[in-house]
Design a protein around this nucleic acid. Sequence first.
DNA 1: CCGTTGACGGCGA
DNA 2: ATCGCCGCCAACG
Length: 110
Amino acid sequence: MPRKSSYLQIYAVVGRIPRGRVATYGQVANLAELAGQARLVGYALSALPESSALPWHRVINARGQISERSTGLGRESLQRVLLRKEKIHFDGKGIIPLSRFRWRPGESES
DNA sequence: CCGTTGACGGCGA
DNA sequence: ATCGCCGCCAACG
């Protein structure tokens, strides 16, 4: 059950996403015991400092795409670069096949 | 205190 | 398959 800081739970989950894998906002919300609050995940990530060590780039939307920021900064392009660096591929429409890259907790993590 | 806003997502039209 | 609406909830003004 959720407690005081939802953000901490969200950050904890994001920190466990393995390299070469992605998770959707909704998935993170569920793992953080915040089912149905995918939006809160995005809000929490937007609050992260640029210096954050968290793999924030591994979080994409349920459509397998990088979500558009409203605040102009070129964050999306950086995210795309970081993901490709991890061998995560996009199809012709800029979509990441979740069937192939979605993180399945329990498979192989620490 | 109250209304808006937002890195989302599910469902119906 | 697309698009629009609405629910969720914390942060702001």
